[in-house]
Design a protein around this nucleic acid. Structure first.
Lengths: 149, 149
DNA sequence: TTACGTGCAAAGTCTTTGCAACCAT
DNA sequence: ATGGTTGCAAAGACTTTGCACGTAA
């Protein structure tokens, strides 16, 4: 259903504007982007668009359930289409690489939390930090960030 | 070993100062606190301490592996003692309650990611969003944030 | 036509940085 | 004594807000 976004807007009493389309397209194209990146992307098409519009639009689109965000890095919210929300982000502490894994990978977790705590996990909002296959050492001590003195 | 923090500092060539002690105590006492909250707490004891010192100290203590932080809410880093790092935070979307569960609860996840992706999960950094037992409805549709129009 | 949405600029929040005085070692 | 630390204030990064004009419906 990624084509009826405009219906969703209108159905909720909001207007369909080029800015909103541009932002949604940017989120779709970039897949994982900060407001700033989305802003930059949008500007390549329409120079007039303002940052505040991007923020306001992202907020609206999130309210409507069209996009979602997670906090992958320090202070930078990352937006993505809600239709891709049902995956989990793996973020590598060392190289910063973001990998997506299917929600199936975390089903054992969801089940465990459900049983142990009665907690209903929001899988689409889940971000997992650690070391990716390429960065993890052979015998990894699960270390903290190495001090730089 | 929560008493040898000063040795850790000195061993790494850093000085032991009242400010650093106060910040560490605040993190310990508050358990889950933002820099702002830590600052407020520290000020109750020593009025002279400055915000920038709190930030600098948190950064240092994190480098040394004495404290750690996670991103629990919108843009707000939450600090806690690294000795309590090996637990997972469950954050309720509706009531905001933060629950801690033992890392054992996520072992199935860690194992699954290890096998499927070769990804080494940093359990201490893991924050899971969802609905807590008290907030989840009987037949919960895992909804987005409700629109306020 | 009507009022929702946008651009613009200013204000706000949170965090970082430069520098001289200060104090742990 | 000596250089790591701190306080202070200013700068920075990111996000929000007020208002008048533009525009979707």
């Amino acid at each position: 259903m990624p084509q009826e976004w405009d219906d969703t807007l209108r159905a909720s009493g909001y207007r369909v504007t080029p800015q909103r389309q541009l932002v949604l397209e940017a989120v779709s194209r970039l897949e994982h982007a900060t407001p700033e990146e989305i802003y930059a992307d949008v500007r390549q098409t329409a120079r007039g668009v303002n940052v505040s519009t991007v923020y306001r639009t992202l907020e609206l689109l999130e309210q409507l359930g069209l996009v979602a965000h997670s906090h992958l890095f320090h202070g930078a919210p990352i937006y993505h289409l809600a239709t891709q929300a049902q995956h989990v982000h793996l973020v590598c502490h060392r190289c910063g690489q973001v990998t997506e894994v299917d929600r199936a990978a975390v089903l054992p977790l969801v089940t465990a939390l459900e049983e142990a705590e009665g907690f209903q996990t929001d899988v689409g909002h889940l971000t997992i930090f650690g070391l990716c296959a390429g960065c993890r050492p052979a015998a990894p001590p699960l270390g903290q960030v190495s001090a730089t003195a």
